[in-house]
Design a protein around this nucleic acid. Sequence first.
DNA 1: CGGGCTGGGTTGCTTCAAGCAACTCTCTTG
DNA 2: CAAGAGAGTTGCTTGAAGCAACCCAGCCCG
Lengths: 174, 174
Amino acid sequence: MREATECAKITYVLRHDYPGQMCSIASALEVVGERWSLLIVRDVMNGRRRFDSLQKGLGIARNVLTNRLQRLVEENILERRAYQESPPRYEYFLTEKGLDLWPALIALLAWGDRHSPPSPDGPPMLIVHKRCGGRVDDRGICAECGEVLHARDARALPGPGVEALALASPAKAT
Amino acid sequence: MREATECAKITYVLRHDYPGQMCSIASALEVVGERWSLLIVRDVMNGRRRFDSLQKGLGIARNVLTNRLQRLVEENILERRAYQESPPRYEYFLTEKGLDLWPALIALLAWGDRHSPPSPDGPPMLIVHKRCGGRVDDRGICAECGEVLHARDARALPGPGVEALALASPAKAT
DNA sequence: CGGGCTGGGTTGCTTCAAGCAACTCTCTTG
DNA sequence: CAAGAGAGTTGCTTGAAGCAACCCAGCCCG
């Protein structure tokens, strides 16, 4: 599927997306631009690996989640591994391709923080450099040490926004 | 709309999106995660400012384009300006908020280039630093001079991939 | 040893969004 | 005076998402 020589005809091979676009943004969105896909990737990046946990965390419909996970696995963004047999149970892990989405997620996160913050008390999620604890900016660069980071170098922490909300509605403790 | 104090209830104010997510990635995707939105922003960034031009360039349905443009204007990502009256004709420009999406677009572009290139001959679109002509990497940093760039510092050029395709199907000259 | 829980789905139905084609309205141009 | 550009609008059809219910295998608990 998706052979190099077929690239002029690729548009109708793709399922339901941006036909005729000769741009890698469009190609990227064909794969991860579907509703929920990037949020699933984000959650898996933050350590949610199992179907139920993803479903509950996202509030996504189960059939849609099934769908997205399959697609992300097909696209080699996630990998599905059994962590036990009988009954078979699975976890989803990010591949390198999936981890490479990190800069895009960080950029979106930073944009959301700046322009449509879900909480007025500050960002609900902080990304910090594991090694030095510095905050990560919109380019995925550590504000402390200046290093250009990758997915594995950083970690997400709950930020001030989320604490304020937890106080406002303490019912929803995880 | 979207008052600070209402933020715990914001989820059902939003039209059709990711309920209950306390994360700015979700907030960002509520606004620009809809089908076509980011591609419209990209096209406007590249100088396509008019309805027809966007419609033809993207191959999007006209009613959907109307819809998206309205939403993007409401969200203060685009600005609609008349460039003549009688008959009234409009152009769409990016606001600062819209321009700030640049790093996210660049990250997606780089990801697409690396992992699902629409052309085997190289990237179909090159982003270069206006001032020094250097290529821009996945973080929006100039590979030549090392500067951290913003939307206005860079320009898109057709890359090697697009030339190869133009040769393959020369019918579609713009 | 029966009942409920956990985990990972599938099925069926309904609603909402996207795609498509045709139409409108006002100039402008040939 | 007909055709075309520009910016949409309308109506109909398909396709995706949401929701609730169901399934099945093991395990856990009284």
